[in-house]
């Protein structure tokens, strides 16, 4: 079980590495679509990568309501308690 801060750090690091983003741009309020320009194809890559890191089969259904980085962190936090 990872703390929310740990999840936050992992997610941030993943986004920066995978999408070659500037670290300052990856704030919790950043929207995937508008701010970070991450589209549906990217989302599949992101989900696959996160599934490997968190050792959980994460499905797109889980991410349906994820719009911002914060949503993603909350979602993963919620999933790991299931």
């Amino acid at each position: 079980m990872k703390s929310r801060q740990e999840i936050h750090d992992i997610v941030r690091r993943t986004l920066v590495e995978l999408f070659e983003l500037e670290a300052p741009a990856v704030v919790p309020e950043a929207s995937f679509n508008d701010d970070l320009e991450i589209d549906s194809i990217d989302a599949v890559d992101l989900i696959d990568h996160l599934s490997r890191i968190f050792e959980r089969r994460v499905s797109p259904r889980d991410f349906r309501s994820v719009r911002t980085v914060n949503d993603l962190i909350d979602c993963i936090d919620r999933l790991q308690t299931q």
Partner: peptide, 8 residues
Amino acid sequence: DAPLPIAS
């Protein structure tokens, strides 16, 4: 040589 989203 790059992460998948960049390479693709």
